[in-house]
Amino acid sequence: MTVRLESVTFTSGDGATPIPSYLAIPDRAGPHPVVLILRGVAGPDDGYTEIAQRLAEWGYVALVHGWKVRGIDPADEPVYADLQGAMSFLGSVAEADLERLAVFGFCRGGVHAVMAARAHAEIRVVVVFHGFAFRPAGAQLGAEPYDLAGGVNVPILVLHGTEDERAPMADMRRMEARMQSLGKVCSFVFYDGARHGFAVRTHPGYSEDAATPSFEQAKRFLARYLPVPG
């Protein structure tokens, strides 16, 4: 399927800050289900625009949320305002069906994905690639995904590397056990030897051996809970 990728700018929920982003749209009649991509800190935009194009080829409208305009380690409040702006912007995209919305969170974006799932009833599915159960040492203080888990009531898929140097396996196993004890619809898939950032081609930790099956897993998860018509 051919897709259309374009640079876009939306206004944050603070009503003032412009947020540069990218929008990928399938080149066929819509409306289409939507994936909001919450990127990580490391690496240029190219790795994330490629992911947006991949999702559009699957049949989803994909918006790369450009929160890096806030710096490399922003507080939660402005990021949350930007999420509100992204949701409003997607509501203006004719090809986007916001009643069928997923969030993909990468690295730090995985923290934001959990925050968003608690706050926005429109979100139906969450997928986290090499995210965090607890924020890494030295990061901006804020709510921990481990503590937020009780408020996440949508299916969630966590894809993680066993050699993640930023989010250790012990933490992710604690998160997995917590989600299970809470009765959440949550699946964890671990990739042997994969480091932090394995799914993003422009990230220093990229691994094709882990990235390829992780996206196949994510595609099946989306197809189960947020299928593309036809």
Score class of each variant (00 low, 15 high):
L55Y: 12
G105F: 12
Q180Y: 02
L55N: 02
D14V: 08
A137K: 12
K219V: 04
A81Y: 03
A117K: 01
E163G: 03
A56S: 12
I72M: 14
F221D: 00
V8S: 12
V114T: 15
T212P: 01
D73H: 07
D209A: 15
S214N: 02
A52G: 12
E208N: 02
V64Q: 09
T2R: 15
F129H: 13
Y60R: 09
G66S: 14
A170C: 03
M169R: 05
R174H: 05
A16P: 01
F198A: 02
M87P: 03
D14C: 12
T212C: 05
A56G: 08
V35I: 15
P168F: 10
D209R: 15
H120V: 11
A177R: 15
M115P: 00
R39A: 10
G91L: 06
F104E: 01
R174K: 14
L90P: 04
S21D: 06
Y206H: 14
V114E: 06
A223V: 01
H120R: 06
R178Y: 07
E122M: 11
L159K: 02
S12G: 15
A211I: 03
P74M: 10
L98R: 14
T9Y: 12
R224V: 09
F89W: 07
G161W: 02
G230F: 14
E163V: 08
I123V: 15
L38V: 02
L98G: 12
A117R: 02
A143Y: 07
D147S: 13
Y80H: 14
T162S: 15
Q180P: 00
L182C: 10
